[in-house]
Design a protein around this nucleic acid. Structure first.
Lengths: 342, 342
DNA sequence: TTGAAAGCGCTAACAG
DNA sequence: CTGTTAGCGCTTTCAA
């Protein structure tokens, strides 16, 4: 059985009018009389007509489609952002083509190629951990396809960026901890190839410096953004009998890894070791103890990214690249709320 | 600045050959001499040619694109499934167009329309809680577009379905609990409009019946699949001072709601009240106590759905609808592992 | 081995 | 108000 899609022509024949009339009527063009329009519409409805997107876009030169590239999807942060993107786009008559790089530079590049092939009107991307080569992004720019970098951005100027104020977020946490009385603070950072890791580390340093606390370099553990990284870093320090009083984790999964490790070696959070992290997820409320964190407003990130992109799309000639920064807030739950060490 | 995409024509002009030659060369058609092919390819590369997907599909009548409709995305179960779908599709040269219904029947219908408009080669769908009207699905069938229902399926015959063995999964949990010594078992079910809720309830009943335990109808709480539902149901029973010893939650979020409520009223899990749920999420390991559950293999669900769909696409004439059922396994962690009531 | 012609389904420009 | 013509970028005959 071949797929049998109804075309304008099918409707036209039934009604004994031209294809153009149908096309116009369906799009509510003022050329067509209300009566004809009505007639056409009911017939289209009856036949179950669905416009051929490919054909339409081929002639219209606009796809009303936005491409999105994210590194991961089954993670609260991105999952939530994506959900907001879909919602906003839906309300603004854009379709979303979502692609997932799985943190691979190669896939990322392929996906961008695909999106260009699909002639999306614009692209929102959060780059993979691996990504070091920015050539492809320049290529997109040269093609004249508007691009917005979201959260994870490359070191490029003259591009649209929507980022979280990672530095000040990290600064806020650490300053809060210091005021509580913490001095021995460690930081499990991520892949420093990525701006967010660098920025959070910087915020950490600044807060420590400001309050004249020396940073113990052994407590700055490099890793990535996943559970395992937190687990491993913790275990390493534990084996060396060299744990700080408080660990600031670069992401929520890293903090989970710490929970797991601490649990395994029988250390109690927050009494034996305290933890706080960057990144919020609903489930943190249900951990024991509930995990405090720096909240990144995913809705704002999503919506701002889309707004900038659409603005850029609607206004290609005169548009100037924008760099937006959204603020974080500290959410205190059951960790990092009291300094209770001897 | 207009988007300036390179076309076959651009390459043709540079090389002083016809468009057709370019088209064939790029696709490795045997018509073209290796020399020309090579020439064309390097030029295409150099110019940064990216084939116009719309144009290609318009003539080719196949889009190599699969549409997916899910109710939610920022939830572990669907997030994980989607990730697997993307991975598998990527390896099989299909693009995925993902849409999210947000549990709304209206959106679901609109998304399906859009996917049809995009002339996707096939659709995988997990229906929304609300969805009662199946007309649209028949429409898809009539259009000759292969369709696979995944996990949340409608009551239709002669369609492709890939589901979890919800009934046996629920049965397994309850039987396990009974063997532990539990008798006072409640079930927080979901929207019974949805097959998975009905099936899990059925499994629950069957296990109870088999072991001759009377079911207390007050302990069967209807709700939906979200945190709040679990919270509310718990609170209701708590206020009535009518809690069972063990609650079997229809989903993992519902169980989270129970955790929250129990916490709030100062009841300890698993000692004062025990919980187990359907659905696994990595984070359950980190709860206190770690939440036991029935694991649904998301990878298998995703891959099987895609396999059935692709088979159906490749084989429209002779294809017979398939109903696949994947099995669950019980994962025991810190709940429902011991009966400790007086 | 190459290319000319026709057409996929639709829209935009122009004419009647 | 309605229709004719041309073309979007590509692929598929079919002829040279």
């Amino acid at each position: 059985m071949q797929s049998k899609h109804i075309t304008l022509n099918d409707i036209a024949k039934r009604l004994n009018v031209s294809i153009v009339t149908i096309s116009k009527a369906l799009r509510g063009h003022p050329d067509i009389s209300p009566k004809t329009t009505q007639l056409v519409r009911t017939m289209a409805e009856q036949l179950g007509y669905s416009p051929n997107f490919m054909a339409r876009n081929l002639s219209a030169k606009k796809s009303n489609t936005i491409g999105v590239v994210v590194p991961k999807i089954a993670h609260h942060f991105f999952g939530s952002i994506i959900e907001h993107i879909y919602n906003y786009a839906f309300g603004h008559n854009y379709e979303i083509i979502l692609t997932v790089s799985q943190e691979s530079e190669l896939r990322e590049r392929k996906h961008i190629q695909t999106l260009l092939s699909m002639r999306v009107d614009g692209i929102i991307i959060s780059i993979a951990q691996e990504t070091k080569n920015y050539e492809i992004f320049n290529m997109v720019k040269e093609r004249g396809v508007p691009l917005v970098f979201m959260d994870r951005t490359p070191d490029m100027t003259d591009v649209n960026k929507v980022t979280v104020n990672d530095r000040s977020g990290a600064f806020k946490v650490i300053e809060h901890a210091i005021k509580l009385g913490y001095k021995n603070i460690g930081h499990f950072t991520g892949n420093v190839n990525i701006n967010i890791a660098r920025e959070r580390l910087l915020g950490f340093r600044q807060a420590m410096d400001k309050h004249g606390i020396l940073i113990n370099p052994h407590w700055i553990m490099e890793g990535d953004f996943a559970e395992k990284s937190g687990y491993n870093s913790f275990m390493k320090l534990y084996r060396e009998k060299n744990l700080p009083d408080l660990i600031f984790a670069v992401t929520y999964p890293v903090a989970l890894g710490i929970y797991m490790a601490a649990n395994e070696v029988g250390m109690k959070i927050p009494d034996d070791i305290d933890v706080i992290c960057f990144g919020n997820a609903q489930v943190q409320d249900f951990l024991s103890p509930p995990l405090s964190c720096v909240d990144q407003p995913t809705d704002e990130i999503a919506i701002k990214s889309l707004q900038v992109l659409i603005e850029n799309i609607d206004n290609k000639e005169s548009f100037q690249p924008k760099q937006l920064i959204v603020d974080t807030n500290l959410i205190l739950r059951g960790t990092c709320i009291k300094f209770n060490r001897s």
